[in-house]
Simulated assay, not measured.
Amino acid sequence: MTRDVRNVHDALAAFSEPWQPHRLTSVNDYDVKVVKLLGEFVWHSHPETDELFLVVSGQLTIQLRGRDVVLNSNDVFVVPRGVEHCPRAESEVQAILIEPRGTMNTGDAGGERTAEVQELG
């Protein structure tokens, strides 16, 4: 956790790979992560927690069983705990995620796209 001022745009400029969350800071037991998204992720859920998406730039579609939620820059959406979802970005999206420390990006699905949260330099 950092106690210094962090700039979201500088943090997002520090890496290029999609689907690799980076911890910007922490608040109590929650991580505030920056991430770049491109293409389609995996269908998964987080049985124990909600997941907040805040789009910084681009357009993100969060596919839910039965409907799609489209987020544009500055939009926020919370995927409720246990709800299966699959984020999709036709072009690069920059986003902030807020979720409890230790939450895996692939939730209950696991697999090769599971990524440890990386610390920003």
Rank of each mutant, 00 (worst) to 15 (best):
G82D: 04
V93M: 06
T49S: 15
R65V: 09
V79Y: 08
V83Q: 12
S57N: 05
V76G: 06
V78L: 06
P87K: 12
I62N: 06
Q63T: 01
R65E: 12
I62G: 04
D68M: 10
T61R: 15
E48N: 15
V93W: 02
V70R: 11
R67H: 14
Q59T: 15
V70G: 07
D50M: 10
T61V: 15
R88C: 08
S73W: 03
E84C: 07
Q59I: 10
E90N: 14
I62A: 03
R81M: 00
E84Q: 15
E92M: 15
E92T: 14
V70K: 14
S57M: 01
E51N: 11
G82A: 08
H85K: 09
F77L: 01
R88Y: 09
P87L: 07
Q94R: 15
G82I: 04
E84T: 11
Q59E: 15
Q63A: 13
V78K: 11
V78R: 11
T49E: 08
V70P: 09
V70I: 14
L64Y: 10
D75H: 15
G66H: 13
L52F: 07
P47G: 09
V55H: 05
V83K: 02
D75I: 09
V79D: 02
E51C: 10
E90M: 09
V70N: 09
S91P: 02
E51A: 08
V69C: 11
L60N: 03
Q63M: 10
Q63I: 02
D75N: 15
V56P: 01
S57Y: 00
L64E: 06
L54Q: 07
V69Q: 13
V79S: 02
L71T: 03
R88H: 14
T49P: 01
V70Q: 12
V79E: 01
T61N: 08
I62Y: 06
P47L: 07
Q63P: 01
P87Q: 05
P87R: 12
R81C: 00
P87C: 09
L71M: 04
A89K: 01
E90L: 13
A89P: 03
V56W: 07
V78C: 09
P87V: 03
L52V: 13
V76Q: 08
C86L: 10
R65N: 10
N72A: 14
E48H: 15
G58D: 07
S73K: 11
R67D: 11
E51Y: 07
T61G: 07
V76A: 15
G58T: 09
T49A: 14
N72F: 07
E48Q: 14
L52N: 00
L71D: 01
F77W: 13
V93Q: 04
F77A: 01
C86E: 06
V83M: 08
Q59P: 00
D50S: 04
V55N: 02
H85D: 04
E84M: 12
R67G: 05
V69S: 10
